[in-house]
Design a binder for these strands. Structure first.
Length: 511
RNA sequence: GGCCUCAUCUUCUAGUGGUUAGGAUGGCAGGUUCUCAUCCUGCCGACCGGGGUUCGACUCCCCGUGAGGCUACCA
């Protein structure tokens, strides 16, 4: 077991936090915690042109939402800071120049136009697009002259010829590349910012990162990084590359087909954070023994890098929804209620009428409010769906077509339908509210028993229950009458309201 | 074009030379309190192809094929 494990997540602030970043963070975090190591958050803001304001806060929000807190980072601080790359510019420049001095890198004065033309020509000739090393042969005098005349330059890495670079990837196994296939990578850009390659190698070394665990899209960059370590004379960390998460069409997960923003799942949909976590972590990893539910602590306990797979995994929304429903309906009710409340009250959330009415009710401390959540969550994968279910309790439903909706367009004869309503009305009138159990499930069962007992012999299940359910809920398609009544009867005037509703519909059947 | 990676049911995957190829999801059918959902039961459903190696290959090797990633003064 490795000691002094230090791993990191190194996102760039270029927009909404990506779901893939989250999974990488998760794997890194789990690995760190399992080995009593440190999980470092480093912000890689070296591309000013792509930077999007507010990205960092969203990143932080996403991580803390699923319950992973960095040990070191821009917010937490730490003894290897600063953890924001734009605050470390001098460092990268010094190291880049050091490489120039030792002949491992060189100044390049080629203009973007020349580079673009070069690439175009090479592509036309079906050659691999690579820098032609024009500036590699510049003399000291030429370089000095160009610098003195303020010509913009970059610092490029001098790729060695025909050197084989190999490493044992902790996930993928032995990997070998040849330096001939590698370009003379830009290390320091003309604006003074480092590229990812330089910055991450320098920082990983300085921050004493023991394991670089990242997505497979970085695989082909690793030989460049290894060569950089060698140029500096540093010991490289252990590398590991996680398989990609893909769209249903097997391409790299992109916004085009899926929502890749973590906050979409948190804010726009309202998933249980552990549902998303559970889902993400199983994309590419399986434990020896699978549990029904996970907490972060359990994941820390069960996680192991050698059970991480090598093949890409499709992001399957059906499976997320399955887990969403599981976590919503089987977690502790009070936890779900407070989670739901804080989701509704998120400043970015637009209230629905039902949600407003629910909040009003909740504020009165009425027991029905918790019961509502309890019943609604059984048929919801995330909070938006839960809110949708909630509507039925506040009468914000689509208008009914009478009598067709009650009789399923005549499938149930009107006489039976009317009988259904009449029996239901009698049951509700006779019900002893005080005798109803406190617990929702028990209450539902009591109601089921009563309805069973009172079922007329000449009424089949559908004819007996369907018209009443529709009349009571004012909804063609909804939860069953028992679940509905178990909540609505808790309301002060619930019983009267229900009787009234049924009477109204019974009247419609008179003619 | 070049380099690299990957390949078991729809999907996530278990499986490390001998298994009726297992689980979950999904779909279908039936049952439970009507519809939807849950739950229960049952069913459907996979080793990309071709060569080797071997007594024996899903498993090891090679070649195809397919998919994907990278190939920027983006990360």
């Amino acid at each position: 077991m490795p000691d002094n494990v230090r791993v990191r997540i190194a996102p760039s602030p270029t927009g909404d936090p990506h779901i893939g970043t989250l999974r990488t963070a998760l794997f890194n975090y789990l690995y760190a915690k399992q080995h009593s190591g440190k999980f470092v958050f480093r912000l890689e803001d070296t591309d000013k042109t792509r930077e999007v304001a507010g990205s960092f806060d969203k990143l932080e929000e996403s991580l803390s939402w699923i319950g992973i807190d960095p040990d070191e980072g821009p917010v937490q601080g730490g003894s290897f800071g600063p953890y924001i790359q734009s605050e470390r510019l001098k460092l990268y420049e010094d190291f880049a120049r050091q490489l120039v001095c030792s002949g491992k890198a060189y100044y390049c004065f080629c203009t973007p136009e020349r580079l673009a033309n070069l690439r175009e020509e090479q592509t036309k000739k079906k050659l691999p697009p690579k820098y032609d090393r024009l500036c590699r042969g510049l003399s000291q005098a030429q370089i000095k002259k160009k610098i003195d005349s303020n010509q913009p330059f970059v610092i490029r890495m001098s790729m060695p010829d025909n050197e084989s670079v190999e490493w044992s990837d902790i996930i993928k196994g032995r990997l070998i590349f040849n330096s001939n296939d590698l370009d003379d990578q830009v290390l320091l850009k003309s604006d003074g910012y480092p590229t990812y390659h330089l910055a991450s190698v320098v920082d990983d070394h300085l921050m004493e990162i023991s394991h670089v665990l990242r997505g497979e899209d970085w695989l082909s960059s690793t030989p460049k990084h290894l060569l950089l370590y060698k140029s500096f004379g540093w010991n490289p960390p252990i590398f590991g590359h996680f398989p990609l998460i893909t769209n249903p069409d097997r391409s790299k997960l992109s916004k085009r087909n899926n929502n890749t923003s973590v906050l979409y799942y948190k804010v726009d949909k309202g998933y249980h954070p552990m549902a998303l976590t559970h889902f993400m972590v199983f994309l590419g990893w399986t434990p020896e023994k699978i549990r029904d539910f996970y907490s972060i602590d359990m994941l820390v306990q069960d996680f192991s890098l050698d059970r991480v797979g090598v093949s890409p995994a499709v992001f399957d929304l059906d499976h997320l929804n399955f887990l969403g429903k599981k976590y919503l309906s089987e977690s502790d009710l009070s936890e779900i209620v407070s989670m739901y409340l804080s989701w509704i009250n998120d400043r970015r959330h637009v209230f629905t009428i039902a949600e407003k009415k629910f909040i009003e009710l909740y504020k009165t401390n009425h027991p029905a409010s918790e019961a509502m959540i309890d019943v609604c969550r059984r048929r919801a994968s995330y909070f938006v769906e839960l809110s949708e279910q909630l509507k039925v309790f506040f009468g914000v439903t689509e208008p009914l077509v009478v009598p067709n909706d009650l009789t399923i367009d005549g499938k149930i004869d009107p006489v039976s339908a009317k009988k259904s309503l009449t029996v239901a009305k009698k049951i509700i009138q006779d019900i002893d509210l005080k005798a109803l159990p406190k617990e929702t499930d028990k209450r539902i069962n009591v109601l089921i028993e009563i309805f069973k007992r009172e079922q007329p012999n000449d009424l089949g299940g559908q004819a007996y229950l369907h018209p009443s359910r529709v009349a009571l809920t004012l909804c063609k398609q909804s939860m069953n009458a028992f679940e509905f009544l178990s909540v609505i009867l808790l309301l002060g005037n619930g019983k009267e309201l229900m009787v009234e509703r049924l009477e109204g519909f019974i009247d419609r059947f008179k003619s």
